[in-house]
Amino acid sequence: MSNKLRSVLSFRVARELIARGFHVVDFATSRKYSGKVVVKFEASREFDEAFSDIMRRIKGEDNSASTSNVHGAPR
């Protein structure tokens, strides 16, 4: 078992990771973003793969939403 942790700032991403079976290790105040809370997970190759998969999907959703109505085209 690794003692390294990964911090996740997005609660949306954290919920998805939890739904995929990853366990929250701790909550902490973000060192980078004052007043924000991060969710800490144990680092693993599986975690990194799931995190990357979730981020790719979210970025794909964001890109399709921002380009789906270009120049007043119907959705």
Rank of each mutant, 00 (worst) to 15 (best):
S64N: 09
K32D: 11
R45G: 05
A50T: 00
R6M: 04
D62M: 10
F22V: 01
L9I: 00
V39H: 13
S7A: 14
I58L: 14
V37D: 08
L9E: 11
P74Q: 01
F27M: 13
F22E: 11
K32T: 15
A65F: 01
E16T: 04
D53V: 05
F11K: 14
A14I: 00
G72A: 05
V70T: 10
S44W: 04
F51N: 15
R15F: 12
R6S: 11
D48K: 02
F41G: 01
S44E: 05
F22D: 04
Y33P: 02
K40F: 08
S30I: 06
K36D: 07
E42T: 02
S52C: 03
L5D: 06
L9F: 07
F22T: 10
K40G: 00
G21Q: 02
R15H: 12
A19P: 10
A73K: 14
T67E: 09
A28C: 12
D62F: 03
F41N: 07
V70W: 04
R15S: 15
F47H: 09
K36E: 08
T29P: 12
E49K: 02
V13R: 09
V13I: 15
D48A: 09
K4S: 09
F27C: 09
R6D: 03
V8I: 15
A28N: 10
K59E: 09
K59N: 13
K4N: 06
G21V: 07
S44N: 07
S68N: 09
I58R: 15
F47S: 02
Y33T: 03
G60I: 00
V24A: 12
D26T: 06
Y33R: 10
D26K: 13
P74C: 01
T29W: 04
R45H: 05
V13W: 08
K4H: 09
G35W: 03
P74N: 08
R15D: 15
V8D: 10
S10F: 01
V37L: 13
F47Y: 08
K59F: 06
G21M: 03
E42S: 13
V38C: 07
L5G: 02
R31A: 11
A73S: 12
D48G: 06
G72V: 04
S66K: 14
V37G: 04
A50M: 03
R56A: 06
E49M: 03
I18D: 15
V70F: 09
D26P: 00
